[in-house]
């Protein structure tokens, strides 16, 4: 018999392991790259042993990883090597996390709405080709157009002004929410999930008894819906890197992009760990919802099989 708690448990373990595994992989990559990481912090510098020591780059990758992880657990990520040289990474990423979370949540709004409407069967199937055509547009294209408009509209204030940040977040969310197959995936995915469930015998029986379809199907598709939503959020998270980089939004994705390009590994480690934390949190949420659904199902009254007294 399949144990109901096995899948949520695996998810919870993966969620907890992600923030440790991601920096470990990046550390491996740093060591695999040719040249010395110190030459990235200080190009053309001779005698940068002091720097190597300060960054724990002088005693192998295990030493580096354990020290970095030890610092990270206390919120200490060191200073940026290249992107904004000298600025504490925590100071950069602190305000960046809410920005990225806001962008993702805003982008989830059209997806939630579309999913709900599709689940209720209120979106005509005839419109699917239109949504799929919109979904073929890569996020990069509208992002570049919006960047040009915002750059001309706000000019010098584009970088820091609150008005421009609001505009960038709203446009970024719209782009993220509808392009790259996000919207069409939400509509088609949710609809097919409910369609399959509606064909189940118990739903037909419930309908004959005069019960609502949604109240019967929702608890049973909840786990799959959350799984789909997690997939979509991860899709949005990776899309956020492109949108933030093009629109110059100071979010986690933009830092990750810039830090990777500039080989600012201190910042790459922290930003990627930030992504891993967000991803882990979503995974943990899915595990909790799965537990709740299973709990709900187990508490449902057991209907005895015919002929059993």
């Amino acid at each position: 018999m399949r144990r109901w708690w096995a899948q949520p448990l695996v998810r919870a373990v993966v969620a907890l392991a992600l923030p440790f595994a991601v920096p470990a992989i990046i550390t491996l990559l740093i060591w695999a790259l040719p040249g010395s990481p110190v030459s990235i912090i200080c190009p053309g510098c001779d005698g940068a042993e002091g720097l190597a020591q300060r960054w724990n780059l002088d005693q192998g990758m295990v030493h580096f990883y354990t020290n970095w992880m030890g610092g990270a657990l206390h919120g200490e990520f060191g200073n940026s090597w290249r992107v904004v040289q000298g600025v504490p990474i925590a100071e950069l990423l602190g305000p960046a996390i809410p920005v990225t979370v806001t962008l993702i949540l805003l982008a989830m709004v059209p997806l939630f709405l579309a999913s709900a409407l599709a689940g209720l069967g209120w979106i005509p199937r005839q419109l699917d080709p239109l949504f799929q055509a919109i979904g073929l547009v890569p996020a990069m294209v509208p992002a570049l157009v919006v960047y040009a408009v915002i750059a001309l509209r706000f000019g010098a204030n584009m970088a820091d002004g609150p008005e421009s940040l609001t505009a960038k977040l709203l446009w970024g969310a719209i782009i993220l929410g509808i392009t790259d197959g996000a919207l069409s995936g939400a509509i088609v995915g949710t609809r097919s999930l409910f369609d399959n469930e509606r064909k189940q015998q118990y739903v037909v029986v419930a309908q004959l008894r005069g019960e609502g379809v949604l109240s019967n199907t929702l608890p049973n598709v909840a786990g799959a819906l959350v799984g789909q939503m997690r997939g979509r959020m991860l899709h949005l998270l990776s899309g956020a890197v492109i949108v933030e980089a093009v629109l110059r939004i100071d979010g986690l994705g933009d830092y990750l992009w810039r830090a990777t390009l500039m080989q600012d590994f201190g910042l790459v480690l922290a930003a990627a760990t930030g992504f891993a934390l967000v991803s882990g949190a979503i995974l943990m949420l899915q595990a909790l919802i799965e537990v709740a659904v299973a709990w709900h199902q187990r508490r449902a009254p057991v209907i005895p099989a015919p002929g059993v007294v």
């Binding site: 200080c42 720097l51 300060r54 200073n79 040289q85 504490p88």
Partner: peptide
């Protein structure tokens, strides 16, 4: 007198 490039002085 040992000044490295990644100090906060580089930004502020």
């Amino acid at each position: 007198t040992a000044i490295s490039p990644d100090l906060e002085f580089s930004a502020r």
